[in-house]
Design a protein around this nucleic acid. Sequence first.
DNA 1: AATATAAATGAATATTCATTCATTTAATAA
DNA 2: TTATTAAATGAATGAATATTCATTTATATT
Lengths: 196, 196
Amino acid sequence: MRARDLNKVELVKQKAMELLVKIGFEGFTMNKLAKECKISVATLYIYYKDKDDLILQVAMEEAERMSNVMLEDFDPEASFEVGLKQQWKNRAKCMLENPITAQFLEQLRTSTYQEDVYGTIVNNFKLTLGKFMTNAINRGEINPMQLEVYWSVAFAPLYNLVRFHFEGRSIGGKPFILTDEALWGTFELVLKALKK
Amino acid sequence: MRARDLNKVELVKQKAMELLVKIGFEGFTMNKLAKECKISVATLYIYYKDKDDLILQVAMEEAERMSNVMLEDFDPEASFEVGLKQQWKNRAKCMLENPITAQFLEQLRTSTYQEDVYGTIVNNFKLTLGKFMTNAINRGEINPMQLEVYWSVAFAPLYNLVRFHFEGRSIGGKPFILTDEALWGTFELVLKALKK
DNA sequence: AATATAAATGAATATTCATTCATTTAATAA
DNA sequence: TTATTAAATGAATGAATATTCATTTATATT
């Protein structure tokens, strides 16, 4: 018996994300992916049933992996300020250390694959987050609000900064680099918005 | 001479966006679009040079149209609170009244077309916004910060709420509807974050 | 070392898709 | 009304793309 080359499997996953981020769904093909990996296109069909299966499996694995990292050292019983800061730390680290994956998952959001990925994976993740917000409300640390409002104020600015960082130019003409100063300065603003 | 049917041209534009939003770049084809419009594919090639040209032209026209609406009644010399409120009003109205266009332009952001669209159109728009922020800083209404930080705190929560609204389910299982209350409640939070 | 077995492959095949072409249709201008 | 002209079309065409297949290759087991 010949064993499957796990490095090759991993390579396929990485290159698939790279290629999708680089040329978008509109340009992505199985042949390009195979060429990029320097393997036969037939090999892709040993690993995956078809193109959809490939994209979906890669997406699910990465979404799961990333959401696990995002919960590291996070305690939903922690105080609001400490908990939120930990969330920012995890999310920023996670995205900045995995730029391809982060951009790939972002890209998924406006594709037909979104539903399958987000429907299944991210659920206990959401529960933890909801519990954290409810705790903060019950303790009187923040005012009552809808979870969607909370999420939008608490995290959308962070995701947006990271996006500007990846795009490298954002609004003005000059490249934007997300420094620690900018990151934590923004965090303070968000904290100010949410705290009573 | 036979005149071009402008209703048909408009129909193509609308259906193109609808289809792209519905089935993503990965599923979009010229034949599907033609069928959707109940016209011949060949007609598409009278209006547009090729597929890229079609997507790009539709995108540019819509991006320009939307960014014009977003600046209606906006005065970069207005006070910070008044100006930001007007921006929120315009953007919310614009996206909620043009859901397809809004989602289509969102989708573009993670495609290869992004560069061409955003590079050209949105520039004087950005200048106006930058001027408004600088004014607010000079008047001492807000603290000095990078334009990217400002944008991320001032608008990312709004865009995120609208996205949740379109997705219709967002975080929890129940559908999320963006009410006026949620919208303006969030605005107050953002204002609190930014004002000195 | 020999065998067995799945991995891996290069070269098809089959399908989908963008694009073109030969005609027809409708509207304008004469 | 007729001639003219571009719009509009249905049916190709050919290129790109997903997928399969007949072989070969490598490795674990005996």
